[in-house]
Each structure stands twice: as C-alpha cells, then as structure tokens.
C-alpha cells in the first residue's frame, strides 16, 4: 500500500494505492492520525488506485470518520472524511457491508474537495 499526500488550503487529500488489509491498515490509521494531530480534520481519500479493501480497512475508515466528525471548528463547521473514485470492486464491498450509506462518496476528487 502506498499513500500519497496532497495538501490544499482547507482540506488534505490522501491518494491510496494497493491493498488495505490487516497488514497495511495500521499504517493507514497512523497516516490519518498524523493529520489529526496537526489539527487537520478534513480529509478526502482518492481511491482510484485502490486494488483491494478487507474488513480491517473498513474499520479504520469508519473510526476515522467518527473521530473527524467529532471535531468541530464552530457549531456549523466540522471535520469529515469523504471518499472519491471508488473502483467497482471496492464499491461492491461497501454495498455488501452496508458501508455505502456511512460515507459521502464522490466520482471525482475536485467535487469531493470542493464539498467542504
């Protein structure tokens, strides 16, 4: 798994390629925590190159979203994790596990970043 980071003004983007499984999900969690620790709680994931996700990966994503949304800048504006460019297989895992309704999904990163 490789994670590329792009920083925008208000939002950070993580481009994840390869596999998120039990072996690599701790690394993903660390990467997200590193952003949270610097006070950055708005993250877009670009999953265009994500080949594979298993349940430990799903767990990292849902826990990250819960934590991001808990953080509020003002009463109206808070953090979030939003997902872009899910490949068909990844979308299928999300559908099977009922995760599709748990995240805001976007078909391109520009809209995803702009949604914040």
């Amino acid at each position: 798994m490789e994670i590329e980071h792009r920083r925008f003004n208000r939002v950070d983007m993580l481009v994840v390629s390869g596999r998120i499984d039990a072996a690599t999900s701790p690394q993903l969690k660390q990467r997200i925590e590193a952003l949270f620790e610097t006070g950055r709680y708005r993250i877009v994931f670009d999953f265009a190159q994500l080949a594979y996700v298993s349940s430990p990966g799903l767990r990292v994503l849902i826990e990250a979203r819960k934590k991001a949304r808990d953080w509020k800048i003002t009463d109206l504006e808070g953090g979030d994790i939003r997902l872009a460019n899910l490949p068909p297989r990844i979308k299928e895992v999300f559908d099977l596990t009922g995760f599709t309704s748990l995240f805001e999904l976007y078909s391109d990163t520009v809209t995803a970043v702009g949604s914040f």
Binding site: S54, R59, K66, V93, L96, T97
Partner: peptide, 14 residues
C-alpha cells in the same frame, strides 16, 4: 447510522 455502527463480525459475514 455512523455514530452507533458496530464493526464486529464483518469478516465472517463477508
């Protein structure tokens, strides 16, 4: 919904 969602048992379910 997100706040109450439990993540146990997903592996076996899949």
């Amino acid at each position: 919904p997100l706040e109450e969602r439990q993540v146990g048992g997903l592996g076996l379910y899949l």
